[in-house]
Computed example of a mutant assay.
Amino acid sequence: MADIQRVDHSTCMVLSIVGEFGREASPAARLRNEMALVPVPPCVVLDLGDMTRWDEATIGALIASLKRTMSVGGRLVIAAASPDLSERFRAQALPLEQYSTVADAVAACGVQE
């Protein structure tokens, strides 16, 4: 089961997904709910470094998060995605910025850690 942890910075929010994200609706629904319940800052960093499994529900939740963030003029930035998930994002032609570390992604959002 996945856990979603949130850390707010002055101009971005980091959401870290930890554990298995797939085969059940709850992690995808929780990500959508987390994104819907908070005001979207200019930049949202999704830290996927500790996500151990993903499926189509994961992709759907990320696309919904991307659309919501972009609809209010924000950016959705991916950090530490596995190589197979990064390749899936590229294959989907999603307009996602990807960084190898959370620190790099946060820096790209203009925030100093």
Rank of each mutant, 00 (worst) to 15 (best):
M1I: 08
M1W: 00
A2T: 15
D3Q: 15
I4R: 13
R6Q: 15
D8F: 06
H9I: 12
S10C: 11
T11E: 08
T11L: 04
C12E: 14
C12A: 14
C12I: 14
V14T: 15
V14L: 13
L15V: 15
S16P: 11
V18L: 11
G19N: 08
F21Q: 13
E24Y: 04
E24W: 00
A25G: 06
A25K: 09
S26C: 12
P27R: 12
A28W: 02
A29Y: 00
A29C: 03
A29H: 02
R30L: 12
R30W: 00
R30E: 13
L31T: 10
L31H: 08
L31Q: 09
R32P: 02
N33F: 01
E34H: 01
E34Q: 09
L37Y: 00
L37R: 07
V38T: 08
V38H: 05
P39I: 02
V40W: 02
V40H: 00
P41E: 07
P42A: 08
P42T: 00
P42E: 12
C43Y: 00
C43P: 06
V44K: 03
V44L: 11
V45N: 06
D47I: 00
D47T: 10
G49Y: 01
M51R: 05
M51V: 11
R53Q: 07
W54N: 04
D55A: 06
A57P: 01
T58F: 06
A61Y: 10
L62M: 15
I63A: 10
S65R: 07
L66V: 09
L66C: 07
K67G: 09
R68N: 02
T69Y: 02
M70W: 03
S71Q: 05
S71M: 04
V72P: 00
G73H: 06
G74D: 09
R75I: 14
R75L: 13
L76Y: 11
V77F: 07
I78C: 13
I78M: 15
A80P: 04
A80C: 08
S82N: 04
P83K: 10
P83H: 04
P83E: 09
D84T: 10
D84A: 10
D84G: 10
L85I: 10
L85W: 06
S86Y: 01
E87S: 11
E87L: 13
R88P: 01
R88W: 01
R88A: 08
F89Q: 09
R90Q: 05
R90T: 09
R90G: 05
A91D: 09
Q92D: 07
Q92L: 13
Q92I: 05
L94A: 05
P95Y: 00
P95Q: 02
P95V: 08
E97L: 14
E97I: 02
Q98P: 00
T101L: 07
T101P: 05
V102Y: 11
A103T: 04
A103H: 05
V106Q: 02
V106K: 04
A107C: 06
A107I: 00
A108W: 00
C109T: 02
C109E: 06
C109P: 03
G110R: 06
E113C: 02
